[in-house]
Design a protein around this nucleic acid. Sequence first.
RNA 1: GGUGGCAUAGCUCAGCUGGAUAGAGCACCUGCCUUCUAAGCAGGCGGUCCUAGGUUCGAAUCCUAGUGCCAUCACCA
Length: 595
Amino acid sequence: MSIQTVLEAKVKEAILSIFGAELTSVEFQPTRKDFEGDVTVVVFPMLRVVKGNPVQIGEQLGAFLKDAVDEVSDFNVVKGFLNLVLRDAFYVGFFNGIKEASNYGFVEERTADAVMVEYSSPNTNKPLHLGHIRNNLLGYSVAEILKASGKKVYKTQIINDRGIHICKSMVAWQRFGNDKTPENTGLKGDKLVGNYYVAFDKAYKVEIAKLVADGVDEKIAAKEAPILKEAQEMLIKWEAGDAEVTSLWKRMNAWVYEGFAITYKNMGVNFDKLYYESDTYLLGKDVVADGLRKGVFFKKEDGSVWIDLTDEGLDEKIVLRSDGTAVYMTQDIGTAIQRVNDYPDIKGMVYTVGNEQDYHFKVLFLILKKLGFSWAEHLHHLSYGMVDLPSGKMKSREGTVVDADDLMNDMTTTARELSEELGKLEEYSHEEKQELYKMVGMGALKYYILKVDPKKRILFNPEESVDFQGNTGPFIQYTYARIQSILRKANNAGVVLSRTIETSFKLHEKEKELIKQLQLFPETIQLAATNFSPALLANYVYDLVKEFNSFYQQVSILGETDEQKKALRVQLSQKVSEVIESGFKLLGINVPERM
RNA sequence: GGUGGCAUAGCUCAGCUGGAUAGAGCACCUGCCUUCUAAGCAGGCGGUCCUAGGUUCGAAUCCUAGUGCCAUCACCA
């Protein structure tokens, strides 16, 4: 039973016996550092049931608790705040209880409660950029956090591998490609294909300008440009299963997948199952037909199928075109159902998609509910803000993007330069150094992105590089490395790590603060899971690390002559490093032994 | 125009279900490496929490209205 549960029961008992009043709940908060105490009971809300002066009520309550609860050693009242001082024995006891636990803070998986997390979901016509990085890091991290909170998780994505935009890069490659391949150019496959997506747009604009110069109206020109016509014809051929088009499509997509695989590997993300739009885009149609019979949808005169959501405050939304072909919504309905068919233990799904699609997902979830699927009650759109540049929105077509591979390389380079300047790694081999630079560079990038509340938009200025000092990934990695160094030395010196600390032990202020911070880890994981927010975890780890560094500067660990003190300090350091490691693991960030 | 999101220090961000004097980092200024890694620590400077009302013992937080920025409202995805 937690101390808070004990205190809550006792506070209620006290109010009942002293004032004869019943409390439904008690408000606790950690005592602010400027006051003496550990836990604060807020007296104000009690005024609703107890008449009187809050300070006097606090005094009486404090006296009762000091008497009735072993852990409470003292108290003081400031205005309406009752600050309780807890005995060191309580903290020592807590620490003895967790220090040997291997997965502290993590909850055992409950398989009955599975959830599917979708993220990444790229188009196969261009390389991944900074926007995808945010998506990938968020989705991956949320999946790991959900796992740690006790859920079974399947990571997935839906690959947008068909449609007019894919045909555009295919047409451009046919026109301007001269049989260039990743093999004969040495270019990464997704980069090569992306170049033709840009080339298409360029040629398209030239053609429009030419038509306009010939006196054609601009709007008509935009529809009549030959290269666009060509792409549209190619899409029709693709849907008809034309052998030549299909073969080119498979070939170019394969190049892209090879490129993506490298990017994902460098980013450190992975998937349990892949879905392809080309496999699922037809599936939703049956469901729509079925829903039409049930009266969930209705058909307009031209044959198109719609759903009326005006009662829910939304509009009418199309779910099938008049020519019977699927729209985006149709495909998403089908994909959702397909997933539950494939994994019947799924109770819910999380879609990691940018906030520009808030409306789409609102509608999708509503449709699935109306179709009567029980799991539709547990769908969540993990909506995140865009990553914008100082110049505005990133646009692949116009080449104004921060490329994912380039950015990751830049980060590694910066980490190397910084590290070489400090020159602490003489004994490392070339390979070990490379691995470390990458770890630190990626740590900086990942932390930079994940520490921000997902729903806020990020302004990324490529001119000002991501920091490596202060509230950053490398700062936390550095603290971890420093602890590892202490642990190596402690091990050589024969410090006994398993030693149980006596409950009569008098804690140093900094030791107590560290234990308090460690206590918060399990609830932080749960909070991050229910809020789908890695930022909460990132900020927790930062606070823990700040607390540790302060402890590290103020007290001597290995230099301590009192054996029990030394043992506690080494044990504390070890536990802190374990929590840093597992907390960072949930953010997808690795930690180094040295740096 | 309708709908949704955001607005906190010069800059980038925290601030959990309303609680005590609004916190970090960067930048700028001071100190601290012959002692466990200075990518660190300690301190200083810096705030009309967008504006105006309201609810409350108490509002950065909740409600209403307004302002600004972003997104969205296609037989595009």
